[in-house]
């Protein structure tokens, strides 16, 4: 088994999930509570990675990060490095690619929080930010956990975007799915089989965990 690739994938998935929680929660809050009529457009943009071929997404990300693009140039000036074919570049692509997997369940969970609880908190003089932290997030915790787990699992298994943006550099951008592809190409079926089984196991456990959370097999906060 390619432990180096597995470790890289786990690092990538963990970092992606952490960033998505920071970026995705405010987006989900806005989608759940904003009265704006055009928010369906933002919903559509956030959900694009669900239907777009990873190659298409990968191509755009690659173009956007390239040294000739303003973004790539800025990054080069700030860090001296380049985003394409680097771990950081892969991270940016993964965040975009898994965005709907965080935003959708969290938006649904925020939307399910009784509006009156939020208003009750406001009327008690508690600010919107503190209400978000003390009322909305605790009550939406199962949805937030679901979003985090799905994003982690989705990043762990991504292939197309990684190949487009990161290429195949051992220890830098060669994730577990690419490693499996390499092994098959090299007719190294036994190794590919073991790594695949590992991914299958992880994916199953993660999904089982997600659905158990949704069915509230465990209560997130202790009952009386």
């Amino acid at each position: 088994m390619d432990w180096q690739a597995i470790w890289l994938s786990v690092r990538l998935a963990a970092a992606t999930t952490a960033i998505l929680l920071v970026v995705g929660l405010p987006i989900a809050y806005w989608l759940a509570f904003s009265p704006r009529r055009w928010k369906f457009l933002v919903e559509a943009v956030v959900s694009l990675p669900l239907v777009l071929p990873p190659t298409v997404l990968g191509l755009y990300v690659l173009l956007a990060m390239g040294p000739r693009s303003p973004l790539g140039a800025l990054y080069a000036r700030l860090t001296g490095g380049m985003l394409p074919f680097s771990f950081q570049g892969l991270l940016v692509a993964s965040v975009l690619y898994s965005l709907p997997f965080t935003v959708q369940p969290v938006t649904a969970a925020f939307g399910a929080v009784d509006r009156r609880l939020v208003e009750a908190s406001w009327c008690l003089g508690v600010s919107r930010a503190a209400t978000f932290r003390r009322v909305i997030v605790p009550l939406a915790l199962p949805g937030i956990a679901t979003g985090a787990i799905l994003s982690f699992a989705h990043t762990l298994g991504e292939f197309g975007v990684v190949l487009m943006v990161g290429g195949n550099i051992a220890g830098v951008t060669r994730t577990v799915s690419i490693s499996i592809y390499d092994q098959v190409q090299a007719l190294n079926y036994a190794s590919a089989w073991v790594t695949s089984l590992f991914l299958l196991g992880v994916s199953f456990v993660v999904l089982a965990l997600t659905y158990a959370l949704q069915r509230r097999i465990w209560t997130v906060w202790p009952a009386n």
Partner: peptide
Amino acid sequence: AGYLFQEYALFPH
């Protein structure tokens, strides 16, 4: 302005 909702809206958590 303290507001009492019809179903009281106590924080369940």
